[in-house]
Design a protein around this nucleic acid. Sequence first.
DNA 1: CAGATGATGTTCT
DNA 2: GAACATCATCTGC
Length: 186
Amino acid sequence: MVKPAPNLTDALSAARSLLGYKLIHKTAEGITSGIIVETEAYTSEDKASHSYNGRTTRNEVMFGPAGRAYVYFTYGMHYCFNIVTGPEGSGQAVLIRALEPIDGLEIMMTRRGRDNNLTNGPAKLVQAMGITKNDNGKSLLDGGNLRLEQCILPTEIVKTTRIGIKKDIHRLWRFYIKDSPNISHI
DNA sequence: CAGATGATGTTCT
DNA sequence: GAACATCATCTGC
């Protein structure tokens, strides 16, 4: 039995489909993993998206094939992690905003320097999972150290507005698993 | 709980 | 020079 791959045909479908998948990262420090519980979709027609104004050195991974990691630096000190979706060249991705920690809690606590709020935010989960700018462009589907695995089927998904943006705020492109204790914001 | 604020540096205009 | 897909910490409810 092969576990089903996530539906990455477009950012909106993928943002829902990825909920319940486990993100797994193997590093020298050990294995960390967590179930994706909150996502946001971004496309090239969306003014809030990095891809809105076309391809640049920063966002070029967004225009590559689906299933790769798009890791970007922001606010002078944080990284965020996305999964590229859609046809190659379309500039779509899904921002992973929160995880439910599963494996490697001790490692996460060391990386975060605290014992709470390990993965309930886009920059927090990047730090806890040990994801770096070097992971930008890596495939999540090729059996490498950073990968996805189906874990649970969400019972109920909430669809609402995205967080931390000032443009196109009307779009209901944020999704999270209802009643998850690890959401970045209600 | 909500709101304000500083940290910090890359990217784009 | 401004904007930025954030976070930790503070204040005042």
